[in-house]
């Protein structure tokens, strides 16, 4: 998987992916898609990227992901990806002009590299409120983006994908460039995780604390790529440790609910500690 070419390094908290490519389009795309997360030095997972000119018609439809031994492969019409499961190196071939192809390749690279260094990517919104991090995992359509719009007093970290990792002895939630409607954050940001609130749409609103087993189960449901990890033990450890350190809740929200009063008591209780 060796190669030469210009490099662009992208860093989300403790996870770094360095893209090596001769294609100026790739580097321009990385700057436009991941600009605030581009960092000066290399290392981390080294991803060698080339481009191709026509979509691969044999790979139409959804993305095909396979694990063979210590290698992960993913393919669809605009992307061919091969990653070492040790998180050290990989190769990608991306249809020139396909920004989704760039995003998907980088998301896989961060997922694999993250699991290797003790970080997980969650389908979750996240906010920072007075230097505390609040993580809101939820399925597509559960209301993550809506919740972000309604938490007016919170600084938004992400409305779609949060990276969670232990940093200086505490679990922190990091903003990522893998956003939804809110797009790219202005700058990398993070906060120590105070609570995890799994959001669900419902006819009435409520906040209910859940036990650790349910919290682990729900975290796994929202963790990207846990099935990729050899024997899944590492991601299970991360989920177990995270729920030991942070309280977890189910946050049910009706369509017209204002979430701030509902979770305000919880915020205030922790902030007064």
């Amino acid at each position: 998987m060796a190669g030469s070419g210009s490099i662009s390094s992208i860093e989300i908290g403790p996870v770094r992916v360095t893209v090596e490519s001769d294609s100026s389009w790739i580097h321009r795309s990385l700057r436009s898609e991941f600009g605030p997360f581009i960092t000066g030095s290399g290392a981390g997972l080294r991803l060698r990227v080339t481009t191709f000119g026509e979509p691969d018609a044999s790979c139409e439809g959804g993305i095909q992901v396979r694990r063979r031994g210590e290698e992960l492969t993913a393919s669809r019409g605009d992307l061919k990806l091969r990653l070492g499961m040790n998180g050290g190196a990989g190769e990608a071939s991306i249809l020139e002009g396909s920004l989704p192809g760039v995003r998907v390749a980088l998301r896989f690279a961060f997922t694999v590299r993250g699991l290797c260094v003790g970080a997980i990517l969650l389908h979750a919104a996240a906010t920072r409120f007075r230097d505390r991090g609040w993580v809101f995992p939820g399925r597509s359509g559960a209301g993550k983006t809506t919740l972000m719009r309604r938490l007016a007093s919170h600084r938004k970290l992400t409305d779609e994908t949060a990276l969670i990792a232990r940093h200086d002895g505490r679990w922190r939630v990091f903003a990522t460039p893998f956003g939804g409607d809110f797009g790219l954050p202005e700058e990398p940001d993070s906060a120590p995780v105070d609570a995890i609130m799994f959001i669900e749409k419902d006819l009435r609103s409520e906040l209910r604390q859940i036990d650790r087993l349910e919290a682990v189960y729900r975290i796994l449901q929202h963790t990207m790529g846990w099935g990729l990890e050899d024997r899944c033990g590492r991601v299970l450890d991360l989920a177990t440790e995270l729920t030991e350190a942070c309280e977890s809740f189910v946050l049910r929200l009706s369509l017209d609910a204002d979430p701030e009063p509902l979770i305000g008591k919880r915020f205030n209780a922790n902030l007064s500690l």
């Binding site: 036990d211 650790r212 087993l213 682990v216 189960y217 796994l220 449901q221 846990w226 099935g227 990890e229 050899d230 024997r231 899944c232 033990g233 991601v235 299970l236 450890d237 177990t240 729920t243």
Partner: peptide, 24 residues
Amino acid sequence: DEIAYRVIDEEAVLLNPVDNRIHL
């Protein structure tokens, strides 16, 4: 032995990497 598991408060969560299913 492909199944990963952890016991939390006397109850277990199991991960099956073959079918990507979670069991409690």
